[in-house]
Structure formats: structure tokens, C-alpha cells
């Protein structure tokens, strides 16, 4: 487990470099969401989650459901860096025969927990997993990463209701509140706010954080773990495309990949950031 924030920041930098390389090689995929969630996934895999890369089905592991499956490149990159599979496999993303399917396929790659990507289903599966854990009096937590856009789906709200009904205090939903979805900004597509109030009125405990600040991410999860009978929602405010200046906050980068010259520019920026991080004391 990486303790220092600097190490976590360096890991994020590595993963952003991996993402640009993977997505450019694939020629299709979702860079903005993946880059935006990088810090959350680094915090999860390298600090928060109880997991064992050598034993992905370890019974006592924390479960991590990725509901907005289209950002799976960031999960693949985090898993490879955590030792689940060789990093050389990352560039097979979306290629014929690869275990790294365009959207997560749990039967292809151990450790994914759920084949997902039709939005509005993951949180409800996480509710079912948390119910099973409660029934069996198990200690692990069930984390779900979901997108703001998939809160358009009525089924997401069915799951939010269910988690409250069953007092699932070991269910933590981390929302990627990056304000974009495929066709535009979330506030233009479908009204979502006040998201915090909505969750609270559905009986959840809500914690708001900057989704790029490791101290905030880690302390939010620690606070969440103190919940007695409420499910917990962590609204993580995130910059989509984080780390690549020309992708940041642009919904046009939701579902298209960089051309080689754009990738070069992006990798240069990521390299500069690495230098800056290494010089930081």
C-alpha cells in the first residue's frame, strides 16, 4: 500500500501516460472519463481497497463495481500497475482476442467483478452484493463508481432507494461528477442538481470532495466507513480529461481518441508533470 501522497500522484501520472498510449493504440474509447477518474482509481487500488492481485476472488476483498463501464481503461491500467496482469497487455485494449474488452467483461479478466456498461445497472448490482454480505455477516465493503450522466436513468434511483431501505452502511457509491456526458454538459442534457440534496432526501449520507485531492479522497472513505445504518455517497468533483490541457472539461473528448500528433502533445504534458512531481519535496 502506497502511503505518501507523492507516490500516489506519481502513480496517477504513470497511469495517465498508460491511458494515452492505450487509447491511441486502440483508436476508439473514452479518454475524458478515464483521465478524470485516474486519481480515484489510484486511491482505490493503491490505498483504500482491501484486495490481492494474486487472488482476485479472495473472499474477504472489498468489491469494486464500475457502473460506468466505458471508463474501463483506467481500471485496466490501475489493475496492471497493481500487478493483476502484465503492463505489456494494456495496448491490446479493444483488439480482437484481448481480455481488455471495450467495456468490462468479467469472464475474460479476473478481478473486474461485473461485466458492465449499460448505464444505470451497476449501483443496483452493488446493492445486491451488499445485501449478500449483510446476510452472511461479512466485513468487506462494496464500492461502486458511477457517473453523473447515469443518474439520468430511473433504474439508478431505484437502486438508491433500495440501498436506503436495506440500510446498507457498507455500500459506498463514488460519483464521477465531471459535468459532461456524451452529447454535452450534464446541466444542458438533463437536470441533475441538487444532487447532494437528492441523495440526502433518499436517506444517504453524502460527502463532497475534490476528486483529484488524495487526502480528501482517502479521508472521505474513512468517514464513510463510520456510517452506522446509511449507505454513503461520495460526490467527487472531477475535471474530465484531467492532466491533458486540451481535453480538460471538453465533452467532445468523452468518446474519441487522440490522433498520433495529439497523443504526442498529451504525453509531453504528462512528462512535464512528472518532472514537476519529482521536484516537489
Amino acid at each position: 500500500m502506497m502511503s505518501s501522497v507523492k507516490n500516489l500522484e506519481l502513480m496517477s501520472n504513470t497511469i495517465r501516460e498508460d491511458l494515452i498510449k492505450m487509447l491511441t493504440a486502440a483508436g476508439s474509447g473514452h479518454p475524458a472519463g478515464s483521465l478524470g477518474l485516474t486519481d480515484i482509481f489510484v486511491a482505490l487500488y493503491f490505498n483504500i481497497l482491501k484486495h490481492d492481485h494474486k487472488n482476485p476472488n479472495w473472499d474477504k476483498r472489498d468489491r469494486l463495481i464500475l457502473s460506468n463501464g466505458h471508463v474501463c481503461p483506467v481500471r485496466y491500467a490501475a489493475m496492471a500497475n497493481a500487478g493483476y496482469f502484465p503492463k505489456t497487455e494494456l495496448v491490446t485494449l479493444r483488439k480482437l482476442g484481448s481480455r481488455l474488452q471495450g467495456h468490462p467483461s468479467r469472464l475474460d479478466l479476473p478481478g473486474l467483478e461485473l461485466s458492465s456498461a449499460s448505464l444505470g445497472q451497476g449501483l443496483s448490482v452493488a446493492v445486491g452484493m451488499a445485501l449478500a454480505a449483510k446476510l452472511d455477516k461479512k466485513d468487506h465493503y462494496v464500492f461502486c463508481v458511477s457517473s453523473d450522466g447515469e443518474h439520468d436513468e430511473g433504474s439508478t434511483w431505484e437502486a438508491i432507494n433500495a440501498a436506503h431501505k436495506y440500510k446498507l452502511n457498507k455500500l459506498i457509491n463514488i460519483i464521477d461528477r465531471n459535468n459532461i456526458q456524451i452529447s454535452g454538459f450534464t446541466h444542458d442534457i438533463w437536470p441533475m442538481e441538487p444532487l447532494k440534496n437528492k441523495y440526502e432526501s433518499f436517506g444517504w449520507k453524502v460527502i463532497e470532495i475534490n476528486g483529484h485531492d488524495f487526502k480528501q479522497i482517502i479521508s472521505a472513505v474513512q468517514k464513510a466507513k463510520g456510517s452506522k445504518d446509511q449507505p454513503i455517497c461520495i460526490i467527487a468533483y472531477i475535471i474530465p480529461g484531467k492532466g491533458v490541457s486540451f481535453m480538460e472539461n471538453q465533452f467532445s473528448w468523452h468518446g474519441k481518441t487522440p490522433k498520433p500528433e495529439e497523443a504526442e502533445k498529451a504525453l509531453l504534458e504528462i512528462k512535464e508533470e512528472r518532472k514537476r512531481l519529482l521536484n516537489k519535496r
Binding site: 467483478e113 461485473l114 444505470g120 445497472q121 443496483s124 448490482v125 452493488a126 446493492v127 445486491g128 452484493m129 451488499a130 445485501l131 449478500a132 454480505a133 452472511d136 430511473g154 433504474s155 431505484e158 437502486a159 432507494n161 433500495a162
Partner: peptide
């Protein structure tokens, strides 16, 4: 409740466990 979608996906979570 009258929420079939949630019933099926909750069932999935239970089954995966």
C-alpha cells in the same frame, strides 16, 4: 417494490456473491 429493473440487478449482485 414495483421496480423490476432493480429487482433483476439486485438478484445479479446476490448471485455473484
Amino acid at each position: 417494490g414495483v421496480a423490476e429493473q432493480n429487482m433483476i440487478t439486485m438478484a445479479t449482485g446476490l448471485a455473484l456473491e
